[in-house]
Design a protein around this nucleic acid. Structure first.
Lengths: 236, 236
DNA sequence: GCGCCCCGTGGCATTCGGTGCCATCCGCGC
DNA sequence: GCGCGGATGGCACCGAATGCCACGGGGCGC
């Protein structure tokens, strides 16, 4: 029934536009009364995002069920993958919805609000799962947790939108993993635990303009790390 | 007049609650007609955030007037400082508004939407001001721009909320700068240009768990950089 | 000084989202 | 068959938001 109403709403929104469509029309199209619509959706906007509530609890469940010593940042990445999967489950609908949210400010704001709920969930999780032994000096943890959560969510949104813009073609999950990698490369090392960056090489070195950035596992052979850094510096 | 209406609205919201207050009452309290209210505010919510529109164009102006070779990330940080200053300009009102937005979901979402507008502005700016010579391999620039913008905005929001929770005591700008520093330390080097981290020392080295992170200016004396890194590695 | 126009305002009517209340209907267990 | 609970329909109502027109005052040209 939710599905039926939601489908009817999407159909009408796509043809007549969002604000030009009244709840009465949606209900009529679904063959029910206006009052019934509001029993299934708190608002007219919600008919476009029928799955966010469920997805939020599913994401929370993913966090809850995470293996005890997984990197919290990885856990959160897996959490938001639930959102991605929800979108990927019905690409056609997602694309149509994307075009709607692009045009209608109200819907755009509603989606932003939804995303913010995930972000809050992740922030709380990260804050509660920071390495207790690696506590940083000041109490910057809340700040880092919030920034990290927002980085993950933003990366997700970016990949998602790009995918939707392209008509939902190609493998999103792979693109998403790549984005997470990029984020971790330029960011994630300060967060919870180990990064993937140093898995194959003893140290990952990258230079941009006047800045040299090095990421290395401290259990890598010392001379190997030093040689890698030296090589990068001398290139200049 | 906007101010007068806004003040009346805040007063009523604080005493009667947000949804219990009708626009008629606000207008009456300000001594004008209901219709006049909607000539000054697009919606009831907007009466609580009367300055976001102006602040957005001021922030845009800051970006526009930025010195040609400033680090874009720094520019953006200066941009969002305009927002912070707007809040800091009237601490009492900001605190009251904070408590309102904490309680009323509608207002919470409205504020989130406002913040998203700054984020979009900054994302576009960063994307357009990345070092042209330091273009990265893939086209990950849009992703990095978005993540960086969101990091800056998130850091701002965090500091702002903490400050408001504490009753608007203390120097926010200093706290904000500190947050920016933290963000740049664990993040910002991958972005646009040089970071402040290496200004005094030839290289900033930080270790967390198994990971070593180094940030150094490549024009710093090579041996000094190497020595600093070596010292950090040997501590283990 | 006089008419003119522009702009902010007031008041009215209307649409429509959202909520509360009550009656109804359907299926289910007893 | 009977009671019962959950889902529905229909109704009334509130209030946000918009459009329209009329009024009034202040600046402007003549």
């Amino acid at each position: 029934m939710r599905r039926e109403l939601s489908a009817a709403a999407m159909e009408l929104f796509a043809t007549k536009g969002y604000e030009a469509t009244t709840v009465d029309e949606i209900a009529a199209a679904a063959g029910v009364a206006r009052r019934t619509f509001f029993r299934h959706f708190r608002s007219k906007e919600e008919a476009i995002f029928p799955d966010h509530d469920d997805t939020l609890v599913r994401a929370a469940a993913v966090l809850d069920a995470a293996p005890a010593h997984e990197n919290p940042l990885d856990t959160v990445c897996r959490g938001i993958k639930e959102v991605m999967r929800m979108y990927a489950a019905s690409p056609a609908v997602s694309v149509a919805r994307y075009h709607l949210t692009r045009e209608v400010p109200t819907l755009r704001e509603a989606e932003i609000a939804s995303v913010a709920r995930y972000e809050r969930l992740f922030t709380r999780y990260l804050l509660g799962h920071f390495d207790e032994d690696a506590h940083r000096e000041g109490d910057d943890d809340p700040l880092l947790a919030e920034v990290a959560a927002s980085a993950v969510v933003t990366a997700h949104n970016h990949v998602l939108r790009r995918w939707l813009r392209a008509g939902a073609q190609g493998d999103v999950e792979t693109q998403l993993d790549h984005a997470f990698e990029i984020v971790r490369e330029t960011f994630g090392t300060g967060i919870g635990g180990r990064s993937d960056a140093g898995e194959s090489a003893p140290a990952a070195v990258s230079r941009t303009g006047e800045v040299l950035v090095t990421v290395a596992r401290t259990d890598a052979p010392l001379d190997e790390v030093m040689r890698t850094i030296e090589r990068a510096l001398k290139k200049r």
